[in-house]
Amino acid sequence: MSTATRRPRDTEFASGKGEVLLQASDVLMQFGGLTAVKDVNMTVHEGEIVGLIGPNGAGKTTFFNCLTGLYKPTSGEVRLAGEQIPPKPRKVVKAGMARTFQNIRLFGNMTALENVMVGTYCRTTSGVLTTVLRGPKFHREEKETRAKAQELLDFVGLGHTTELLARNLPYGDQRRLEVARALATDPKVVLLDEPTAGMNPQETQQASDLIFRIRDTGRAVVVIEHDMRFIFNLCDRVLCLVRGEVLVEGSPEQVQSDPRVIEAYIGTGDDDDFDDDDVQEGPA
């Protein structure tokens, strides 16, 4: 596992320089009388890491579900690489957007490798006839799938767990396996729903490192997190969602110093996250 700590944001994919990959415009999601997400706009560029923060129930996961086609927004639209996203989750995946879940949803009784191989489903095409007749295409594709899955396991640092059952993996490894599975779908945009929930500081550090490396492959990453130290260190841009609306959007520095954010989300009294010199890149 590489142990890179913080990574500068001025790489070749610095914020705003790449093309727009994901654009959500005026997304409104209502369940009956309840408005869970209200007129949210979000633009994500190639090679950018965007953070989504907000108190519990602010509508972050609901917004994710709108992005990935799990919910159909009441109004507004979501464009992925210029195209409106298709109405079904699996088609959204095929169009190039993959996600992980807040509560880990791995296929527990499959091995780590098989889990990642499932992720390649939408990028492979062996049909019934090819499978039953076991033609050359089947063997080629199976071999490629296997190699790609192994490569991704290595990428997230789980190369040694190939043949282990997902349900037997430690918690942190399960989180990383979910990321590997999402990457197997070959996404342009990766949505991570609380990727460090329940992790210890060391695992959190590894998670940041992993997200930087995903960013460095040219993908865009959108992260929901509650861990402020993690998110301000990681993201190029942060959106703070409160009661379904974007309260503040801006650089981590802008967002973390905004009094409204402190009031709405972090509350008062506990200043740990803000006084830690390790976290801050510049003056708050």
């Binding site: 791995l106 499959m110 499932v118």
Partner: peptide, 20 residues
């Protein structure tokens, strides 16, 4: 690939769908 898809469906239908 098809068999793996079936297992994934048995394990967690929504997660399988979200994985394409």
């Amino acid at each position: 690939r098809i068999g793996r898809g079936w297992i994934a469906i048995r394990e967690d239908e929504r997660a399988a769908e979200a994985m394409g």
